[in-house]
């Protein structure tokens, strides 16, 4: 993309393309960053994959119990969160575009919007967790469940629910930290049409976290809603 050639050197000024010393061209650097990010996202897929495997196995074994848990899942909050995350992905994509167009004001605006959506997601998630705690649905901490015939197996689902959404929420928190970093850098006018790799990379990460939720929502909230 960027075909401007800038002399290599670690002390290059902030406004210049940040070509690290060991790359020959900035195109090479960008290629490497992109491939690195995609590879990292593949490891993330496998990281979540372990939990999805467990989910698939137990759902096959204990479909009745898994379906019965849907009555305790707040589809409205979950659905709202899905919408919130999809919006955040849109604003994230717009932030990347703004960076590519060297539009600093829009870039900061969309990054902050993304952060607001992300925070909203976590707040809603927090309410859901609180409700589960109140309803004694946290495995290992006074778990109680009706209908009783599913009490044992429903615990497996709730364990997976907390593991999967918790791990997802942790990724969101990390994402918010990265976005904060981007906002600071954008404010310092680091990004421009010549250098926007970090925005794009963190954007990829954000979309990945979004996609994980797109899978989590139907799998965890809508099992019992098959009509």
């Amino acid at each position: 993309m960027a075909d401007t050639v800038v002399p290599a050197g670690p002390e290059t000024a902030v406004e210049d393309i940040r070509l690290k010393h060991h790359f020959a061209t900035s195109a090479q650097q960008m290629d490497a960053d992109t491939l690195g990010m995609w590879t990292f996202l593949i490891t993330e897929v496998l990281f979540f994959g372990g939990m999805f495997t467990a989910y698939v196995m137990y759902r096959n074994m204990y479909l009745g119990a898994f379906a019965s848990t849907s009555q305790y899942m707040n589809v409205v909050l979950g659905g709202t969160n899905t919408a919130v995350l999809i919006c955040s992905s849109l604003t994230m994509a717009l932030a990347v575009r703004a960076a590519q167009l060297s539009n600093r004001r829009h870039q900061i605006l969309f990054l902050i919007l993304t952060m607001i959506f992300g925070t909203a997601f976590l707040v809603i998630k927090g309410f859901e967790y609180h409700a589960k705690w109140v309803e004694h649905l946290v495995p290992g901490f006074g778990f109680q469940y009706e209908p009783a015939q599913y009490a044992h197996h429903a615990q497996i689902l709730f364990f997976l629910y907390f593991a999967m959404t918790g791990m997802h929420a942790l990724h969101m928190v990390v994402g918010l930290g990265l976005l904060t970093y981007l906002v600071v850098q954008a404010y310092r006018r680091v990004f421009s049409a010549n250098y926007f790799v970090p925005v794009e990379m963190i954007g990829l990460y954000w979309h990945f976290v979004d996609i994980v939720w797109i899978f989590l929502f139907p799998l965890l909230y809508l099992i019992g809603h098959r009509r």
Partner: peptide, 14 residues
């Protein structure tokens, strides 16, 4: 060990 795991048709759990 876990009578509620599978309930025979026509009977009550618990």
């Amino acid at each position: 060990l876990d009578p509620n795991a599978k309930i025979v048709a026509g009977f009550q759990p618990d």
